[in-house]
Structure formats: C-alpha cells, structure tokens
Design a protein around this nucleic acid. Structure first.
Length: 495
RNA sequence: GUCCCCAUCGUCUAACGGUCAGGACAUCGCCCUUUCAAGGCGAGAAAACGGGUUCGAAUCCCGUUGGGGGCACCA
C-alpha cells in the first residue's frame, strides 16, 4: 500500500465508448487535484465488462487524455509500482481477494439461482417490504458444506457479508458533506459472478485499496453505490478514501448530455479545431469556480490552484457559446507567429490554398495572422477570410457587393485616385498604404465609406474583408493595381 | 415503490446570518470605426414554493414541488 501521506487519485474510464465531456471533466479534476497537491495521478482502465470494452476504445481514450494534456504518472502504458493498470490484467488479484474474504468469513458462497432471486424480489415487492435486497438465504450455510458444493462444481457467486450490527453508513464527501445511508438498505451484494469475474463494485475497491487511492473523485451517479463500496473496504480491512462526487453535465434542455445535443466526445471537439487549453479551461470552470470573477484559468494555474472546496454541487449545463468564447480568448493570446504556424498555415493547406512549399515568406503569414486572429474562433474560419488573397486574376466578386459599391457613379473616380496613390506608395506595407489612402476621400470629395467600399470590393471582391492596409500589403502592389483595373470594367456596367 | 443527491439572472457561478444579491457567457443599446471583428461603456435579467429558527435568512431547520441518480451475476 502507498503511504498515506501523499495524495493519490485515479481516473478509471471504462473503454465502452469514446471519452465524453463528462468523463473528461472528471479526468481534469482528478489530474488538477493531484497536481495541486503534489500527488500522483493514475490512469486505470476499468474493462471488467468484456462484452462492451474494446482495445480500440482504450486507445481512443488514451489519445484523448494526451490531447487534453492530462499527463498521468502511472497507467497502462507507462506502468508504475501498483500495476497492472488494466482490470482484465488483474483478475487473479480479485480472485485472491474474494477467496481471502470467504476464508475470513467476510464473504460467502451463494448458490441461489437467478430464478429464485427474481422470485424473492417479486415476493418482497408484493408484500411491500421496504427491504428488497438479497434475503441472505445462503449466508448461514456451513462453510465446509459450501466449500464442498463449490468443489463439486455447483454454480455459485460470492457475496459480501455485511455485518448485522453495521450501523448507518456515513460518507464524508468532499463536495456534498456528510451523506448518511440507512443500514437497512445494505444487502449482501454479489462481488463475484458465477462466471468467475468480479463485479464493478468489488474490482474497483480492490484496485483503489491496493493502489493506495486517497481521494476518489468521480461522477455523482456513483454516490448511491458508495455505501456498498465502503462495505468492501471494511471487509478488506483497507482505509476508506475521501470521496468527492461531482455533478453531471447536462444538455441545454436540462437532460443528461447526449448525442442529440451535438458533440459529446472529446475527439469531436478536437477535430472541430478547439484548442485543448481552451477546452480544458471551459470544462474545468463548468462546476468549479476559483472565485466569482475569474473566467480564464490556464492549465498551469488550474494545476496549482484547483481545490475540491469550490466544486459545485449542482448539475451544470454545457454551453457551446461560452466554449466558443473561451476558445476565442485563447486564440487571441497566441502570438502572430504561433497562430500562423499552428492554425493559419495548416488550415490553408487543408483548403488547398497552400501546398507543402509555402508561397510566401514567413512574415507574410504573420501579417495575415495579425488581422485574422481577432476574427477567428475556429481554425477553419481563416480559410474564407483568406481566399481573396489566393484568387489572383480570377477573383470572384460578390454580386451584391459589386452592386452596392462599384456600380456607382463615384466609383471610377475613387478607383483612379486609389490607383494613382497606390502606384507610388513606398514602402509597400500596411501603414504606408493606409497613409496614402487616408487623404483621398476628402481630396476626391467622395464619402469615406463609399470610397473605401469601392476599393475594398475591387481588391477583395466583397464589402466585408480584413482591414485595408494589411489586405493590400498581402496582395502585393502588382496584384492590387491589376485588380483596380479589372474592377473599373465592372464599374462600366453601372446604370 | 424505496434510498440518495440537487435547487441564485436564459447559462456557468460569487457570497459561506446583515451586500443596492457581484462577475462571466448570451441578449440588447451606445461608443470607437473605411467593412467585419476585436475593444470600451451601459441596460434588462435570479433566490422554485410554503412554513419555521433568528433582531435579521439566498445563506440554518422542516415540508412541498420539480429535476437527477442508485436499488443488476452493467460500469
């Protein structure tokens, strides 16, 4: 067993599906709690349900955890002193633990058939018995006789023997406080199935006990299982860890988050282009608040300041709009070079606008990054906003924009003035370009909005575009002048 | 049925017996402005209900209602 000084926590997903947002938040809290307390974060794969667990899902979960940036100190791939870290590799341990409990009289063999169990339960229901658990039929079979029946090959399960004098079970939950379960509710539940595999409530506790887990941070849905698990800890003679049951994550309709609410798995958010920092930030703050003000908590701050005291008891609704906002906050803190390298260029390549060999110098992408950054939430947003830069002479004009900005009597004069000024700008860079254009509306007597509107549509093909100076700088003087010439032809069609 | 959990703006939340119930997202308005953003300023918006306890309750207690979860040889 681990020494009881240091914090040891674990995240133990079942590989029966992808890692979903609720699980991700549980993982984040466990990780952050370990880091904030100088403890150990363990990843364990709870795959005792062989029919639903797959190796593929395990790999998907590991990949998702890595993407989230939640590094684990012990786990299936990195090993550790308390391995193995996959329940299917620990079957012998469960068997030994169960047999030890039987030998110590803390568990017993049960030979009741599923049919008898069902009948007992129906009878209890019929007489409105408040106790609907196992009737303890096999509890008093003589151990020697029971062993003989087992040896003879009779089908059996193993049940925990809840002490008759065990009083109410009181759980000290770090987020819920004291939770009391009535002793009468406890029944002698099955810890080992007739097929020789352990049940979840048993395997988990054996693992948590053997791995020296000090704090069990998990979903609310396990709260009602906790007294059962406490029985196992006590039978095992192991210290009961501190529990922290965190609430569930709901969809906008207040129902448990599911497919019909949209993306539910971590990898869907990754594929959509969310920054893992932003995603972790958002999830961490869904149900945890360091104070009433803070909205941005970078991962390293989370790892330093997370505490269970501030975890909320109420279920929280997943709000995609706020996730978007957090994402944008993170995007805006990126440097131009970083944005260019990690978001802009990859997206341009994905869209086929750039090939493996880049068409411009690094500086060009940084200028583009600087204007696109405050206009970007998702990485893919940059593509449409950059397209005009790659159109060359085949620029597509937005019909409505042309109508409103070029097919006007003032447009030719505006374009002529702009062309003359732009032909002479030195050096060819944003501030000089803006400086050269700036006096022209007044000089030509054309309203500012109209003037810039004409130039904008001529250069970008649309009345909505990134800022003028940078756009023209990126286009290059030759292309800028060529587009003005091309646009003048469009002006001619004015009525 | 039974046990357990939960209940502050639309959403995430702050406060931990005394505040005009604060912040953030979203919404709306204004400002900035050559478009779109970004940014700045501002507005509307909350204690589920009913009883107690207390000089005083969002905060403590009880009940009701409403949501959620467990009660499996699922995890």
């Amino acid at each position: 067993m681990a020494n009881d000084q240091s914090v040891r926590v674990r995240f133990a997903p079942s590989p029966t599906g992808k890692l979903h947002v609720g699980g991700a938040r549980t993982a984040i809290y466990n990780w952050a709690f370990a880091r904030a307390n100088g403890g150990t974060f363990i990843l364990r794969i709870d795959d005792t349900d062989p029919t639903r667990s797959t190796e593929e899902n395990t790999q998907i979960i590991l990949r998702a955890m890595r993407w989230l940036g939640l590094d684990w100190d012990e786990g299936p791939d990195v090993g550790g002193p308390y391995g193995p870290y996959k329940q299917t590799d620990r079957m012998d341990l469960y068997r030994e633990a169960a047999e030890r409990l039987v030998a110590e009289g803390k568990a017993y063999y049960c030979f009741c058939s599923p049919e008898k169990l069902a009948a007992d339960k129906a009878a209890a229901e019929a007489r409105h018995d408040p106790f609907q658990g196992y009737q303890r039929t096999c509890r008093n079979i003589d151990p020697a006789e029971a062993q003989a029946r087992v040896d003879a090959g009779e089908s059996h399960t193993i049940r925990i023997k809840v002490p008759l004098d065990r009083g109410d079970v009181v759980i000290h939950d770090a987020v819920h406080g004291e939770v009391t379960f009535n002793a009468k509710e406890l029944d002698d539940f099955i810890i080992f199935r007739s097929d020789g595999t352990p049940t979840y409530n048993f395997a988990t506790v054996v693992d948590d006990a053997m791995m020296g887990i000090t704090h069990v941070i998990r979903g609310d849905d396990h709260l009602s299982n906790t007294p059962r698990q406490v029985m196992v800890y006590e039978a095992l003679g192991a210290p009961v860890p501190t529990f922290a049951h965190i609430s569930m994550i709901l969809g906008a309709d207040g129902k448990k988050l599911s497919k019909r609410h949209g993306a539910t798995s971590v990898e869907e958010y990754r594929d959509a282009g969310f920054l893992s920092d932003a995603f972790v930030n958002y999830l961490a703050l869904l149900g945890w608040a360091p104070d009433g003000e803070t909205t941005i908590v970078p991962r390293d701050v989370l790892a330093r300041t997370f505490s269970l005291e501030h975890v909320s008891k109420n279920p929280s609704t997943f709000d995609p709009k706020k996730l978007d906002w957090v994402q944008q906050q993170y995007v805006m803190t990126m440097s131009d070079a970083d944005f260019a390298q990690t978001i802009l260029v990859p997206e341009l390549r994905k869209a086929g606008l750039e090939g493996e060999a880049l068409s411009h110098e690094a500086h060009w992408y940084e200028v583009l990054a600087s204007v696109l950054k405050p206009r970007t939430t998702m990485p893919a947003d940059v593509v449409e906003k950059s397209r005009f830069l790659y159109a060359g002479d085949a620029l597509e004009y937005d019909e409505k924009s042309v109508d409103k900005n070029l097919r006007k009597d003032y447009a030719p004069a505006a374009l002529d003035a702009a062309r003359e000024a732009l032909a002479a700008v030195e050096p060819w860079e944003a501030s000089a370009i803006d400086g050269a254009l700036e006096p022209l509306p007044e000089a030509t007597g054309i309203n500012k909005r109209k003037f810039y509107g004409a130039v904008r549509v001529a250069e970008c093909g649309n009345q909505v575009s990134p800022p003028m100076g940078e756009s023209l700088e990126l286009l290059g003087r030759d292309q800028v002048l060529a587009r003005i010439d091309a646009a003048k032809a469009l002006c001619g069609t004015a009525e």
